[in-house]
Write a protein that binds this DNA or RNA. Structure first.
Lengths: 157, 157
DNA sequence: TTGACTCGGACATGGGTTGTCCGGGTACGT
DNA sequence: ACGTACCCGGACAACCCATGTCCGAGTCAA
């Protein structure tokens, strides 16, 4: 899985409850990561419609929906794409005992298992929202840390 | 996910019920894939203990256990490794609001979600065995095709 | 109108998977 | 007992995608 997924998720968490747009450079400074590469991940979120970009001075990114309405799966699919990890190359149609194409209208047994596992994985990621993650942060390091961090992010130099 | 997983799974299915060792070259010919690259996957299965290699003339590969005792997950982990897809880089310990290392003894909320999804994925793959796959093949293309294919594989030129 | 700040897509680089090869070792035939 | 032929095993390149970077188009504030 792409490493940018982690960055994007952390960004979504700190964007929770933010009313003013936040520039990508500030998010990068807060997380101490490459600003240009983080920008790419945020562009992916924008393309997926999870965040709205505001241009010009005082511009930046804002969540388009409430954090409760954004699942972890939404972010993962926005950054890494919606394609399943396993792709069947139909090797049953090759070799001396090749199956006829008409017998391959339905996916083979291996593919079915992979699709089912993929579904379970996505279902698990769908069960948690960004708001849930923010709540976990509050429970782990204290309820006051997230608002303090957001205040630091909101101030413009 | 590595494409070699698909090859390895197909090989395990055709090895079901085989009593004589099968050379990698013959498995490659049957599936019409690169013999040398397929050999690499079989070596991975051998390292994981799923198959036993027999050297010398009339050598090849044999399953070490009954097909009912080999899960799809076993094969996937043997080829692609047991490492989880998501790796936490602990960016919460970086930047101006870095969390103290002692506060990070437990994984962060994002990592917890990823671990749980990974667990669900593996659990789903563990539920199906190679024997189940062989049964699906018999149900899809007829019960006589698999034994006929195995007979073709067993004959030595 | 000016200016400066923002995002967006197009451009290099590096590690990992894919693909290949030859040597060590083993069992069979003589 | 020896020679031989076959098979597996780990070491060696080539390609591709993810990582990382840059500059131009657009936009809002002053």
């Amino acid at each position: 899985m792409s490493g940018g997924v982690e960055w994007a998720l952390h960004c979504c968490v700190v964007l929770t409850g933010m009313t003013e747009p936040v520039p990508a450079a500030r998010l990068a400074e807060f997380h101490d990561v490459s600003p240009t590469y983080l920008a790419k991940q945020l562009q992916a979120l924008s393309r997926a419609g999870l965040v709205r970009s505001v241009q010009g001075q005082a511009g930046g990114y804002v969540l388009t929906r409430a954090a409760e309405e954004i699942s972890v799966l939404d972010v993962v699919e926005a950054v890494d794409g919606r394609a399943p990890a396993f792709v069947c190359t139909e090797i049953r149609q090759r070799g001396p005992f090749a199956a006829t194409p008409e017998a391959c209208r339905t996916p083979c047994g291996i593919t079915k298992v992979m699709i089912e596992a993929d579904r379970a994985w996505r279902e698990s990621l769908r069960a948690t929202s960004i708001a849930d993650l923010a709540g976990t942060v509050a429970r782990d390091v204290g309820a006051e840390t997230l608002p303090r961090a957001q205040a630091w992010i909101a101030q413009r130099d």
